[in-house]
Design a protein around this nucleic acid. Structure first.
Length: 508
RNA sequence: GGUCCUGUGGCCGAGCGGCUAGGCUGAGCUCUGCAAAAGCUCCUACAGCGGUUCGAAUCCGCUCGGGACCUCCA
């Protein structure tokens, strides 16, 4: 098996990946809080982890990929432990059951992720479906002396925990630093320490979602769900835990504290974090309001304010979106995301996206050319070496930009062979097909977008009739007619490519 | 204010001490009836100033930009 190196946030180094129980791999990713539609920045994160999941599968690992859905417990003001539950608030505003809110947005979330061709996780557990597990974990944390009860609320005692443990192991910040350099905050009256966080909250009367617990009728804190669910499905210590970088200092830091506080062992061997998607250099986030939605990017249009949802198949759209020059297909967007490494910020712009789209088309066009390549007895290229370079790129912390650079080498070789400017053996051609199948389709998760339906077959036939007429005109040196056919087809959105073997076409 | 990350050619974006990715754009050439497509060639950059080194985009220091986190966020 290829040695794979993964950047570990804990050590801040790339480390060789060694699973606890090969070939099994436990992989947990913090999923979305479904109180509104996911935006394209959320999608970037889940797409990045999809590449990792796909590559691990390709390498032969048996991966259990768990990605949670947060449907309860995420307060508007986490640090104070105050404010409404985010989902409960939307439920109240929209006069729906909280589960209706979650159902609506999880439907949209899944549809968008499916359009982006991400594989579904093995398990998608919800926080509300794991209340007993969370209560049991809280009981253990209390038993171990790391949490205290205050008027029906349970808080994690961070300073107590930090006496014997490195609380800031992920963020690299010392406990003193965190205690002393925090902004002034309100609503801290119940907590003993300013870094303490809620494990269980007593429900106020207006709170819709509530469960019985030993401490009060209430609901779990935000961080405990991931600790409880990852432990349930992956064990006390598992291989990889991922999430957005913005989760490092609070959510993941507290997750570690809870798990260690409960079980006395580090929950995760490799912590992996993806960088943010930015818009004009600024992080895209729901709280900043600078978000746009996948459906808007895929259509180039603005979501109508009276659209019941942003689920692509149901969205009501208005005029052209002010941010986009045009629509960008999900696969072009996916390719665009992969041209930047997952640990770098990805800045959105029409120019960058258009450039990616063209590059992606070139890769797909070369794949079609590859199917009809003529082989030679000798070869002028080292295709096996190219294949290994593709693996080297992925083994180096999932370096998709370098992988793509290597694939463009393959594109050049394919096109040159097609132009009879270099030679490939039949075996080379088979290896190139394997490279495409493995890296482009299976690992990067790209796919051909034209639907192979009846209408397309008819179109294919119709265009071929016209191309034959044009070729006859060319043979007859009737260039007025041949050019007219070409120009009319271009106007109709069809681009013709002539070659020695004949003419092909594609949609523009 | 504190902690950390970052600054690469017209644009995007790799790079982790030597062999100067890749894409997009632009120019020229080949092919072509003319185009398009494709191929080839060219435009060879590392914010600034110092330092370490035989050698630095890459390490160190300072200066100036940009960003993230320290409150919820993927």
């Amino acid at each position: 098996m290829q040695p794979l190196f993964i950047y570990n946030t804990v050590t801040r180094k790339k480390e060789e990946f060694k699973p606890i129980n090969p070939p099994f791999v436990g992989f947990y990713v913090c999923g979305p809080t479904l109180y509104s539609d996911v935006h394209i920045g959320n999608c970037r994160t889940f797409t990045s982890f999809d590449i990792m999941y796909r590559y691990l599968l390709h390498l032969g690992y048996k991966v259990r990929y768990v990605r949670n859905i947060t449907d309860v417990g995420h307060l508007e003001d986490e640090v104070a432990g105050e404010g409404e539950d985010r989902i409960g608030k939307q439920a109240r505003i929209k006069q729906l059951e909280p589960m209706e809110i979650v159902q609506r947005y999880s439907f949209g979330f899944r549809e968008v992720m499916s359009l982006l061709n991400t594989l579904p996780p093995s398990i998608e557990p919800t926080a509300s479906g794991h209340i007993p597990e969370q209560i049991e974990m809280i009981e253990n944390i209390i038993k171990n002396g790391f949490a205290y009860v205050e008027d029906g609320n349970v808080y994690f005692n961070v300073e107590k925990f930090a006496e014997a443990n490195n609380y800031g192991i992920l963020s690299g910040r010392s406990i003193e630093d965190q205690l002393n350099n925090t902004r002034d905050l309100d609503g801290q009256q119940e907590k003993k320490g300013r870094l303490d966080f809620a494990l269980w909250k007593k429900a106020k009367p207006e709170h819709i979602m509530r469960w019985k617990s030993p401490w009060s009728i209430g609901f779990p804190g935000w961080h405990i769900e991931c600790s409880a669910m990852s432990q349930k499905y992956l064990g006390n210590t598992f291989d990889i835990h991922g999430g957005g970088m913005d989760l490092i200092p609070t959510h993941h830091t507290n997750e570690i504290a809870q798990s260690v506080g409960c079980c006395g062992q580090a929950p995760v061997n490799y912590w992996v974090h993806t960088n943010m998607l930015t818009l004009n250099g600024q992080k895209m986030s729901r709280s900043l309001g600078n978000v746009f939605l996948p459906v808007e990017l895929f259509t180039g249009k603005k979501l109508s304010s009276n659209s019941p949802s942003a689920t692509p198949s149901q969205a009501i759209l208005e005029d052209k979106h002010p941010l986009f020059d045009k629509a960008f297909s999900p696969m072009a967007v996916r390719f665009f995301m992969m041209q930047t490494h997952y640990r770098s910020t990805l800045d959105f712009s029409n120019e960058a996206l258009t450039a990616s789209e063209k590059g992606f088309e070139r890769i797909i066009d070369a794949f079609k050319t590859l199917q009809n390549l003529t082989s030679s007895n000798s070869s002028s290229e080292d295709i096996k070496a190219l294949q290994q370079k593709c693996y080297d790129a992925m083994n180096d912390d999932f370096n998709t930009p370098v992988l793509i650079a290597n694939l463009f080498d393959a594109v050049r070789i394919i096109n040159s062979c097609n132009d009879k400017k270099l030679n490939l053996t039949q075996n080379d051609i088979e290896v190139l097909k394997t490279i495409y199948n493995d890296f482009v389709f299976n690992i990067m998760g790209l796919k051909l977008e034209e639907a192979n339906n009846k209408a397309n077959n008819v179109l294919d036939n119709v265009v071929n009739v016209l191309l034959n007429m044009r070729n006859q005109a060319k043979t007859d040196k009737n260039f007025t007619l041949s050019d007219e056919i070409r120009n009319k087809l271009i106007e109709a959105g069809i681009q013709i490519k002539d070659s020695k073997e004949g003419s092909t076409w594609k949609l523009n």
